[in-house]
Nucleic acid binder design. Sequence first.
DNA 1: TTCGTAGGCCAACAACTGTTGACGTTAGAG
DNA 2: CTCTAACGTCAACAGTTGTTGGCCTACGAA
Lengths: 183, 183
Amino acid sequence: MRRSSSETKTVILAAARERFAADGYDRATIRAIAADAGLDPTQVMRCFGSKDRLFAAACAVDLNLPDLLGTPPGEIAATLVRHFLERWESDETLQVLLRAGVTNAAAAERVRAVFATRLVPVVATLTGDPEGAPVRAGLVSAQILGMALCRYVLAFPPLTELTREEVVEVIGPAVHSYLGLES
Amino acid sequence: MRRSSSETKTVILAAARERFAADGYDRATIRAIAADAGLDPTQVMRCFGSKDRLFAAACAVDLNLPDLLGTPPGEIAATLVRHFLERWESDETLQVLLRAGVTNAAAAERVRAVFATRLVPVVATLTGDPEGAPVRAGLVSAQILGMALCRYVLAFPPLTELTREEVVEVIGPAVHSYLGLES
DNA sequence: TTCGTAGGCCAACAACTGTTGACGTTAGAG
DNA sequence: CTCTAACGTCAACAGTTGTTGGCCTACGAA
C-alpha cells in the first residue's frame, strides 16, 4: 500500500495521540505507535525526526476557547467548564498533555504556556482585573484540571458516574467565584 | 560497611520515595534508586523482590486525617486543606501517589482505595449523609488534588507563589460548600 | 576458634528502547 | 518511456531496563 506523506503523518499523529493519552510519554513506544498506525517504526522517525518531535506535534493544541465575552456573566463559568469537558472527550490532545505533563518536563512547560497565553488573557479581559487574573486563572485551572484528573485519569467511581451536565452544575459555582464576576 | 536488614530497607525506601516522587514510576529506575541509597541494585531486589513490590511499599501510606469531628463546622474545610498541604510538603508519599497514579494502574488503584476507605467515611460521618458522601468526597478530592497538580506538579507560577495559608483561604470555601456543612 | 547465615558486590542475561543505514518498490514529473 | 524522489521494509546498532546467579566477606552463635 502507498500513501502520500501528509496522509501518513496524519495516521501516525492519530495513533501517537491515542498512545500518549493512554500510556503517557515513557510507556508509549515508537514501535507501538507505528504498529497501531499499521506501518514500520522507521516511517515514524522519517516523518517526525525523533520521539520528542513527534510528541511535540501530538501536543500542538489550541484551547479554542468559546466566545465568552458575548455570554452573560452568570453563564460564563458553566460555559467554560462545559467547553473543557467536551474538548476533553472529543479529542485526545488534552489527555496527552495532562498524562504526559506529570512526568515529562516538556509537556509540563507546554501546559504552563497554554495556561499563560490562552487562559490568563481571557480571564483578564473578562474580569477587567489584569493584576488578579493570573491567580484567578490558576484557581480555575486547579478546579477544572482536578476534576479531569479525578474523573478521567484516576477514575473515581462517584465522579465518573456523573453526567457531563451534572459536573457543570456542581463545579460551576466554584469556577464562577474564582473568576470573581458580578451577578 | 554493614547494616541490618531493616536499616537497609529503610534507606532504600527513602531513596525510592524520592525518586518515584520526582520522576514517576517509569523513569525511576532501580539502578538510580540504589545509587541514591549508596548500594547495589541487587540489594534492592533482595530486599523487595521486584520493582512493583518496592513501589507498593513506597506507596504504603495513611492519610492520617486529623480529628475533624472535634473541630467547628466552619473550620473543617480549612483544616482539611491545610492538613493536606502540610502532608504533601512534609513527606513524599503523596507526591509518589499522584505522579505515578497518572501512568501506573496499580498506583491509580491505590489512590482510589485511599479515597474510598479514608476520605469517604469521614465525609459520611461529618455530613450525616452517607448517600451523598461519595460524590461530596469526590468533589473535595478534585479541588484539592487539582490544586496539588497545578501548584506542585505543573508548577503554575501564580499558584506556586501563594503561601500555604493563602491557598487555604482561597479554596477553603469551595471545599466547605462541597462538604455541604451547615453554618 | 569455627562455622553458617546473611549482607554486599560483580558480571551477565534477555528484553526492550530510540535510532540509523541500506535496499527494494512504486508513483509521478520530464 | 525514463528517471528520480519518496514510500515501505528489513536488519541491526548501542544503550538501558528489570532481574538472576555466584562469589566474597563480616558478623553472631556454637
